[in-house]
């Protein structure tokens, strides 16, 4: 089955200036992510994977290069349009969960709908459906502190889905979880992919690869082949 390109980046660069130091987090990345694919981005710390993910999600702007998502050039969007893009097209899942600690699971999931002007009744209904879908029907009234890490991440996944986005971006979603819980989150993301969404996951966890339809390796801000990536992670033999 032919799949259309959902995300295209061309010569994508991101440079951070810290005092006199310039850090090239992305140094000309060209990637194409197909629609309804499950893309796993791997790479060592500092390789630019999270930076790439945030740029794809419109949370930051590139220094140069273009990002086209679903035919829309993100560089042409002003701040408001970019916020609308994040609201309607993208669902984020973070390593730290980023739930509002004072809100219940239900309120956290429904939170993005407030910014879309959805009525309170509909917000609640939609959030309940999603919490049931991620298996947290009994924890709707629980606050993050009353839930385990895995439960919190599932709440975050439900929140990412609340606006029914086409693109799910997950940044180290299992990074703060134990092995078993992490695996269940992987399965949850795989289910989203199976449901027809484009999923991009940044991870260190090689177990994620078994769910991936595409894999991307980043090294020093550039896309590299699997062989180059593996060679870089090999411990040099003592000479």
């Amino acid at each position: 089955m032919d799949q259309a390109a959902f995300v295209i980046t061309q010569n994508l660069r991101k440079t951070f200036v810290m005092g006199r130091t310039r850090v090239h987090a992305l140094a000309g990345v060209d990637v194409t992510i197909l629609e309804k694919s499950f893309t796993v981005i791997m790479g060592p710390s500092g390789s630019g994977k999270s930076t790439l993910l945030y740029l794809l999600g419109g949370l930051d702007r590139p220094t140069s290069g273009t990002i086209i998502v679903n035919g829309q050039d993100l560089n042409t969007l002003d701040e408001n349009a970019l916020a609308v893009y994040r609201r309607n097209t993208v669902g984020f899942v973070f390593q730290q969960f980023n739930l509002v600690s004072s809100m219940t699971a239900l309120e956290n999931v429904a939170f993005p709908l407030r910014f879309g002007g959805v009525a309170a009744g509909l917000r609640s209904k939609r959030a309940k459906e999603l919490l049931e879908q991620v298996g947290l029907a009994k924890h709707m009234r629980h606050r993050p502190v009353e839930m385990s890490g895995g439960q919190q991440q599932r709440v975050a996944i439900a929140r990412a889905l609340v606006n029914n986005p086409a693109l799910i971006l997950a940044d180290e979603p299992t990074g703060n979880l134990d092995t078993v819980t992490g695996y269940s989150i992987m399965q949850q993301l795989a289910e989203l992919h199976a449901g027809g969404r484009t999923v991009v996951v940044v991870t260190h966890d090689p177990r994620m690869l078994r769910f991936a339809t595409n894999t991307m390796y980043l090294l020093d801000g550039q896309c590299v082949s699997r062989e180059e990536y593996e060679a870089s992670s090999r411990v040099p033999e003592a000479g």
């Binding site: 949370l59 916020a83 606006n163």
Partner: peptide, 16 residues
């Protein structure tokens, strides 16, 4: 600050 970042990530505009 993180909450502000989150609000923006989930679709809040600057004006919101």
């Amino acid at each position: 600050t993180r909450e502000i970042g989150l609000m923006k990530a989930i679709g809040a505009t600057n004006r919101n």
